[in-house]
Each structure stands twice: as structure tokens, then as C-alpha cells.
């Protein structure tokens, strides 16, 4: 009822992690379980560019192998949705429309990249114009799940029409205008 502890409790966090990992192992193919067994890399995916410009014939860095483990994974997306609320992402991005932070539904083109490892890095390191850095606050496995959820938002929105009219007014009395407008 009163103020909450600033961080989600560890037991729950650990439990979530176990669920994700066991599902990942049970539900995915051999290749994915190999990826899950990769040694944890501090700081998440290492080779992440936030630009599409690679001078002198350069090429984009390869995707992190973990991308495949989380991207589009229904369980990760589910967990990610819960964590998106729990860590107050929702307070700045709402349910994708954006507010303080930019829209995550596609109205605004990705500033820092929409690949899951790019989104991971956005969350992990923060971004200069007001996106907090969550390294050290959110465990890496959870960041992956949140990143999977963020990507799913964009995909889910793509078949929704964009409203261009306000919703119908609430019921109630409306006063007359007393002067011509």
C-alpha cells in the first residue's frame, strides 16, 4: 500500500530467469540450447552499431547469436511485457505510443536501431536524450526479454490502422456558444 521497495525482489527475478532458461532449453532446437549455454558476456551483445553507414566498404557487424534465442520467442515476449511495466518503461513509453520517450510502435523511425541486440544496448547503456541506463539494475536475461517485447510491439502494430479522428465524446450537457465562431 505504501511506498514500494525500489527494486523487484530477487526471488522473483531468479524464478523468472529459471523459467526462461528452462523453456528455452526444452522448447527450442539444439542450436538454440547451444546458444543458451554460451558463457555470459558482460554487457550483452558486443558488436552493435547504431548507424547504417559503414565507410570504406565496411559491413554491419554480425548479429549476436543470442538474438535468435529471444527474438520472437513467445515466452520471452510475455515476460518482457511484465518487466516493461515493472521497471517503469511504461511510464515513459506507455504501451508503445511514447510520451517522454519516443514511440516504439513505428510512428517514429528507430533512432538507435530496431534489431534486438541494438534494443538490448539501448536498454543496457541508456541513450543520451533521457533514456536511463539499466545495466546493473536489470539482469541481462531480463533485458533480453524486454528487448524481445519491444520488438514485438512494433510488429504487432504494423497491421493496426492508425487512427486519425478523436474518439466519440463522453456523454453530458454541452453549453451553447454565445458568440459566432
Amino acid at each position: 500500500m505504501s511506498s514500494r521497495s525500489p527494486r523487484p525482489d530477487h526471488a522473483q527475478r531468479a524464478a523468472a530467469l529459471v523459467v526462461v532458461l528452462s523453456l528455452a532449453v526444452a522448447g527450442c532446437n539444439q542450436q538454440n540450447s547451444d546458444i543458451a549455454n554460451l558463457p555470459a558476456s558482460e554487457g550483452g551483445p558486443q558488436n552493435v552499431a547504431v548507424t547504417g553507414l559503414f565507410p570504406a566498404g565496411g559491413v554491419p557487424p554480425p548479429e549476436d547469436p543470442r538474438d535468435k534465442l529471444y527474438d520472437g520467442d513467445a515466452h520471452a515476449i510475455n515476460e518482457g511485457q511484465r518487466l516493461f511495466e515493472r521497471y517503469n518503461c511504461v511510464g515513459c513509453h506507455f504501451h508503445g505510443a511514447g510520451g517522454i520517450g519516443p514511440a516504439l510502435l513505428g510512428a517514429d523511425p528507430w533512432r538507435y536501431g530496431g534489431r534486438i541486440d541494438q534494443i538490448f544496448q539501448t536498454i543496457y547503456r541508456g541513450r543520451p536524450n533521457g533514456m536511463p541506463a539499466w545495466a546493473g539494475t536489470i539482469p541481462e536475461a531480463e533485458i533480453w526479454e524486454i528487448a524481445a517485447y519491444v520488438r514485438s510491439l512494433d510488429k504487432a502494430a504494423s497491421d493496426k490502422p492508425i487512427p486519425t479522428e478523436p474518439p466519440p465524446p463522453a456523454a453530458g450537457p454541452s453549453p451553447p456558444s454565445a458568440a459566432a465562431n
Binding site: 508503445g96 505510443a97 493496426k160 487512427p163
Partner: peptide, 20 residues
């Protein structure tokens, strides 16, 4: 902020009233 009206809860709910 170029917000997305497909989610009416945006900007503390103001997006819902202003898609136009």
C-alpha cells in the same frame, strides 16, 4: 514528440484524445 496514436494511453492518456 511524434507519438503513435495506435496506443491511446500515450503521454499519460492525452494521445487518445488527439490523434487528429
Amino acid at each position: 514528440g511524434n507519438l503513435d496514436p495506435r496506443d491511446p494511453t500515450g503521454a499519460l492518456g492525452f494521445v487518445g484524445a488527439m490523434p487528429d
